[in-house]
Amino acid sequence: MSITRSGIHGSLLGGASRYLLLTFMAATALIPGYIMFVGAFKTQADFLNSPYGIPASLSFGGFRSAWTDKFPQWLINSFVITTGSVVVSVFIASLAAWGFAHFPFKGRETVLGVTVSLMVVPPVVLLIPLFQVGVHLGLISTLRLVIIIYVGLMLPFSIYMLTNYFKSIPNSILESASVDGASPLRIFSSIVIPLSGAPLITLGVVNLLWAWNELLLALVFLQSNEKRTLMVGITGFQSRYSLDIPTVMAGMSIATLPLVVAYLFGQRFFIAGLTAGSVKGE
């Protein structure tokens, strides 16, 4: 990142106004998270007194009442669905991307173009036919079907990003390997994958955010209370605990925590991964 950090430096006033803008934006970005987090540690009376101040005393009542009922089960469901769909989608997308990047078969650009353009198909469009299939096969309220659908929906972007990255790997590296007689599988597993750490992690985090946060399909396909994901579960919280905001906020805080962890972990790969994949290679 330090390469172009020389930047362009305007007047002192320009510098100050830039910091003003950034500080304003950062505050706007952080305040809702702050409200959620401090709200989770209040009692309802505290919250009504001062909804946005620092809590007078820490109360864990919100967490206690949030962590009952099916909440732990919902958390597990979300973990299973997210892990399953992220692992499968990144794995089969990297196989496909290698297929597209490495083998110049006839019609490649067309097949790739069609695959990538599936990105623009609205998920709600697929909802009805997939639901009917689910009913037909008795797979409604199973995590399996949701994982498959999530994988499908994540594939077009994943393939797009990884194909661009794999194409940008210098030919010379691959050539020397194939002169040595390495098979495409060998080249893929011992050269391409180790070189692709940043884009693979970036893609993993992007897909993880998507899968963890998805609401529409989870709402429709997971109808029994035991099979709900956390997002569907806490959406119901709002109306159920409308007189107990700290419980709502506590539930939300728990639901957000894994994402913040994933994000902080993935953050340093983000810039590198996105530069290498979806942006470069045009």
């Binding site: 950034l22 934006m25 950062a26 970005a29 952080l30 809702p32 998270g33 409200i35 959620m36 955010l209 963890w212 946060n213 609401l215 997002m231 806490i234 959406t235 919280f237 709002q238 709502v248 906020m249 939300m252 639901a255 957000t256 994402l259 913040v260 994000y263 953050q267």
Partner: peptide, 18 residues
């Protein structure tokens, strides 16, 4: 990190807090 944070938060959470 601050400016990127909203992108990470779950939409249901964002919607309820807002």
């Amino acid at each position: 990190a601050a400016v990127f944070l909203p992108y990470v938060l779950p939409i249901p959470v964002v919607a309820v807090v807002f």
